[in-house]
Computed example of a mutant assay.
Amino acid sequence: MITIATAECFTHGILAREIHALAQDYDDIFASSYWGLVNKVQKDCIKDAILEDKCSIFDLRDLSVSCGLFIPTLDAVKSVLKIENPLEPLTLIDGIKVYDDDGDREMAILMAEAAKKVSGSDIGIGTTAGIGYGGIAIVDDDIVISTSSDVYADLVNVDSDDLYMRQRSGIEKTLKILIYYLNDNLDIINQMNNVKIYNKSE
């Protein structure tokens, strides 16, 4: 069993719910809203594993969500995630942290590492987005996968449609990367738009 914890901002805790639904193999109205997307990615991985021996085949029922945290504010980053010195935001909106793209990517990594640590999970996921494409991170003991959504939005100059589309893009991209990662298919992840994989030992 692989345990996973999320610390989410612009994805509003939806990733934790979706991953949980996939792990529990819920169906019908209680199933993951992104099952079609995940099923397509799983089929890609099965094809690569069987035909080209590129990766393994991971059973999503071997996942367990330890916790899913919605962490929009800087205070919660400090008090809940126990990040003593978080990155200074560009501004705060009612306590909600706002960064640019570089800041979001750095902060997402910190949030993912913290979620993993405070929950004692095998994998941590962090998401945060202010002005730009946002930051998404998936971490384990060995690697950090850092990326962003593929949609620009601005939390300061609010446009609900843009914010929704950025959120949806972020959720879809995170789920894709997570499934490829679980299937050891890092080659495909490396080919995706705006993704970096860091080895912690380097």
Rank of each mutant, 00 (worst) to 15 (best):
D104W: 09
D25I: 08
T6W: 04
V98E: 06
V118L: 05
Y99L: 09
S32M: 05
I14P: 09
H20I: 11
C67T: 15
A115S: 12
K40T: 13
G126D: 15
V80W: 01
D162T: 10
F58C: 00
V38H: 06
V158H: 09
D27F: 12
R105A: 05
S148P: 10
S64G: 05
I96R: 14
E88L: 14
M165F: 09
A31D: 13
S56F: 05
V195C: 06
D28Q: 11
I14F: 12
H20R: 11
L90V: 12
I83E: 01
L178D: 07
Y133A: 06
Q191L: 13
T11H: 02
A108G: 04
V80R: 04
S33A: 15
L87N: 06
I71N: 07
N157C: 04
K176G: 08
D27V: 13
D44R: 08
K97W: 09
E88K: 15
G36V: 11
Y152P: 12
A5K: 03
D140T: 05
V98G: 02
I188K: 13
D101I: 11
G134C: 07
V195H: 02
V139N: 04
L15D: 02
R17F: 13
I138W: 05
C67I: 15
A49C: 07
N39I: 10
V65T: 03
N199W: 09
T11D: 01
D142R: 14
Y181N: 11
D142V: 11
S149C: 04
A31R: 12
I171Y: 01
R61G: 00
T147H: 02
T11G: 04
D94I: 09
E113N: 12
V65G: 01
G13W: 02
I177S: 10
D59I: 00
D100H: 08
I143P: 04
Y180S: 08
C55Q: 10
R105P: 08
G103R: 03
D161H: 12
K43H: 13
A23I: 01
L175H: 06
E113Y: 03
I57M: 09
F30D: 15
F10A: 12
D53I: 01
M165D: 14
T11R: 02
M111I: 09
L186N: 08
S201M: 10
I171L: 05
A153G: 08
I197G: 08
I177F: 04
K40V: 13
